[in-house]
Write a protein that binds this DNA or RNA. Structure first.
Lengths: 214, 214
DNA sequence: CTGGTTCTGTTGCAATTGCAACTTTTTTAC
DNA sequence: GTAAAAAAGTTGCAATTGCAACAGAACCAG
């Protein structure tokens, strides 16, 4: 999730890579659809600036944020294939994204380019990070009680940080969506937890009080 | 999940690969721990025969089967890193597994071996399949009602098959574990769905009656 | 075949959650 | 600055679920 340290790929690397494979940069407005993965486009997206969400939409139209993308984040089409529902990437601010041609990395330029190895490592990094995020989400959703999900989310989010603070990267409504629980039920539980001195909340910042911070 | 057609890697490939990277074959007894991923071992496991489960264990000791591994299945350490809980691979029958040294694929034998490209594609395949399974699990868990989870599970499992039958690859207890719901509550819901003619159940085979099979 | 263990099936009950329907506050757009 | 829209916050109520505690069936191992 957010605590996973992104391996930043700087402009120089992008420039070098663009000699090796097809790289395009595009800008998106707030709310614009960056990708509908139903198309199964084989490419890697790399966020340079802005913010975007990977959102799953089920058959009933319910949305669930799978992951929030920030500068340095990397994503691809592996999120959606073979599932019945759709996954979209939606720009939440003005967002700039590099698109790197995916099959090219494996076919073209085969073994000849000295940056090829770096590209392969980038792919592995992408998939590993993807895998980690998905596992974190499963860990959270495997709890049946809202309180447990909140705590799991906070523990992952706070991770090895020195503080017990966590600033939500999204609104409370989106938080409920992420946890796959009803918004009002989430509010209710957050209130209860505050009354029981388990957390303290101020706007979008949640402080986990130490007693249960095992 | 089970309907995802595995790209079988036959013995010849394994033999060729073993010239390029370090490959070891090991046998495990029923119930034996194949891997505790807490160790963060960088390697790929490839099931030759038998059956094993990837199991997540949370801090309270609750177990949840992430995925069932059958011959041809491939797995690695990307399942667990950076999460607070542990992931294990447990052998359910006598199981034979190839272990392929992971970093070697990317560092040793760099660009020299003509099977290198195949290895890279294997890695991509592994991660993609991993990603698909995890997404399917998230899709299932994103529903809050047991009935919805059962139906999502069946839809994924049946997929594009011609039949409406699905044979559970595990016991009802394990099914409840997989869906992250209480076993007795699952029983109750299965019974209700049978009474409402939504499904028909016989032992471990579930038939989805066509009305709701959109 | 016998005792033990695991799985299946059932039920009552309390707790939690989703849902609907609100009000209030904050943010956005013109 | 003001109207409109989105988000936050509340609450009552019904439905669903988890939990505990059973009993019977199936499946071992000696």
């Amino acid at each position: 999730m957010q605590n996973f340290s992104q391996k930043k790929i700087d402009d120089l690397h992008i420039e070098v890579m663009s000699n090796c494979v097809n790289v395009k940069k595009k800008s998106f407005q707030t709310g614009e659809y960056i990708l509908s993965f139903g198309l199964r486009q084989k490419m890697i997206g790399l966020v340079e600036s802005g913010k975007a969400d990977i959102v799953r939409v089920d058959v009933d139209g319910n949305e669930s944020v799978i992951k929030t993308l920030t500068p340095g984040s990397i994503f691809n089409d592996a999120f959606s294939c073979y599932t019945t529902n759709s996954v979209f990437v939606i720009s939440r601010t003005i967002t700039e994204i590099y698109f790197i041609d995916y099959p090219q990395i494996l076919t073209n330029c085969l073994m000849g380019c000295k940056y090829h190895s770096m590209m392969v490592q980038m792919i592995v990094h992408l998939f590993t990070e993807n895998s980690i995020s998905l596992n974190e989400k499963i860990e959270i959703l495997s709890y049946s009680k809202i309180r447990e999900r909140i705590l799991a989310f906070l523990h992952i989010g706070i991770g090895n940080n020195e503080t017990n603070c966590y600033k939500l990267p999204f609104s409370i409504s989106e938080f409920a969506e992420f946890l796959c629980v009803d918004r009002s039920a989430l509010m209710r539980e957050l209130k209860k937890m505050e009354e029981e001195n388990i957390i303290k909340r101020e706007n979008k910042t949640i402080i986990l009080l130490d007693v249960l911070h095992y």
